[in-house]
Every structure is written in structure tokens, then in C-alpha cells.
Nucleic acid binder design. Structure first.
Lengths: 122, 122
DNA sequence: CTAAACCTTTACGTTGACGTGAAGGTCAAG
DNA sequence: CTTGACCTTCACGTCAACGTAAAGGTTTAG
């Protein structure tokens, strides 16, 4: 598939896909015309990239992880133990982040709770 | 208290506190010398600011919320219903964000699971 | 054949929450 | 009275993941 089609399928833009390639996250084949050619597995890969990006991982961290998900679905064992350490660090960061988000949501909930009660006639 | 002390208490920097003021989040008094003077309640306020910032709210959104937490602890009912709508929107954003983080953490967990099992002798 | 709709590379622009000097006042201790 | 540790206001720098525009090649439908 071509770049625009992959972008549609994965819910992103051609520019983002070129950026991912520049960062070493994707390695599309090239047609004689110079056009990039992606196989269908790339859809899952791109979705993983977006998910991990939205979780706060940067492209270099994702670049280390992606080889362990070669077809966008299967999960292989990480090669080096250093990667495992890095994974643990990122996992901890995510957990901390979730806790903070939950705490912030609690603050908003208290405000929302206090809100509609104003002038409550019941 | 002065700006450096507040920064220490709240775990941030003087620069950040000046930035918060610039964005209308803090309104410290001024001494004759021109020095900023913060009351102790500011510690709680700053902590709230940091929490909401880390949850992805921007300074203008926080500026609308802060008046409902005047002393850094008490929670008042929001004045206008538009603010309540905005709060609901932010709350939804946070929940979505939490879900994505949890999904990303699951991916990492699967990798970590697959990792130590390699060469497992048990 | 030609025009639309793709694609390519190159390269500068954007965003928000600060970091990091620079140049200069203020204040307590010795 | 001076030195060091504060403080002040500019004002430019940073960072990552793209957005956006420019200048040009490719492909395909009519």
C-alpha cells in the first residue's frame, strides 16, 4: 500500500509516517518510481507507535521496542537485558503518570460534584 | 514567604512561579523592595497547578479552575455553567488518556513477560 | 495529451512550559 | 562598606513531533 492509504488506515498523516521512517521506526520498500511501499502489517506497527507515543515514550525508545513486535502483532522476547531495564523504567513512568492523571481527575470530580449542587432544591 | 522558599516547598523553580504569575495563576503581593511575597496557602495552589499541568491541562484552563480552590484546599462550586462543561471535557480527556496509558503499559508488560522467560530452566 | 491526484525531498514554522543567561537592584552579616 | 545571596525584569533558547509550503517527478482517467 502507498503512504496515504496507510495513513488513512492507521489514522494519521503521510508526514507523520515519513517522520517515523526518518526516526528509524519504519522501513518501507521503494518502488521504481521512488514511491514508498508498505505491507499490510505496517498498519499494526503504526498503531503501536501511536499508542506508545501517546504514552510518553519518545521515538528512540520505541525504535528499541519495535523489533520485538515484528509483524505488528506478535510479541518476541527482548534481545538484550538493557532493553528489559528500559522497559521497566518506562513502565514505572507510565504508572506514575496514570496515578497523577487519576489524582487530577479526582480534583475535577470534586469541582463537578460541587457544581450542580448549587441551588439544588431536592 | 519569598519566591525561592515557595519553589522549594512546592518542588519547583522560581522561574516556573514567575511563569504561573504571568499566566494569571498566581497573584503574589509585593514588598516595598519589589520582591514577591507569597502566603503559605500558595504551596497548595502551586501543587494543584503542577498536578493539573501534568494531567495535560494548559495554563488558561487552570486559570479558570483555580478560583474554585481559593486557599489551595477548599473546593467551591464553579460560578458559570460553561466552566462545568469545560471541566467535563477535560475529565473525559483525562480518562481517555488513562486508558491509552494502560493499553501502552499492557504492551510493555507483554514484552517484559516474554523477556525473562527466555532460557528459563524451571 | 493533459489535468488531477498522487508522490518525492528539502527546509522552515509551530506549540507550551519553562531553562538560561544578562544587567542590574536589595538586604543581612561581618 | 562590601561581599554574597537573594531578588527584579527582559529576552532569547530548548525540545519533540510533527504542520506546512515549495519545487518538482509519477500515474492514471478521460
Amino acid at each position: 500500500m502507498r503512504i496515504s492509504e496507510l495513513a488513512r488506515e492507521a489514522g494519521t498523516t503521510p508526514r507523520a509516517l515519513r517522520y517515523y521512517e526518518e526516526q528509524g521506526l519504519l522501513r518501507p520498500a521503494r518502488l521504481a518510481s521512488g514511491y514508498r511501499h508498505y505491507d499490510p502489517q505496517a498498519v499494526g506497527t503504526v498503531r503501536h507507535i501511536q499508542l506508545l507515543l501517546s504514552a510518553g515514550l519518545n521515538t528512540s525508545a520505541i525504535a528499541e521496542i519495535l523489533p520485538c513486535i515484528p509483524d505488528g502483532v506478535t510479541v518476541l522476547a527482548p534481545t538484550c537485558p538493557e532493553l528489559l531495564d528500559a522497559l521497566a523504567v518506562e513502565r514505572a513512568r507510565i504508572t506514575t503518570s496514570i496515578d497523577r492523571l487519576a489524582a487530577a481527575r479526582d480534583v475535577l470530580d470534586r469541582l463537578i460534584q460541587a457544581g450542580p449542587a448549587a441551588g439544588d432544591q431536592s
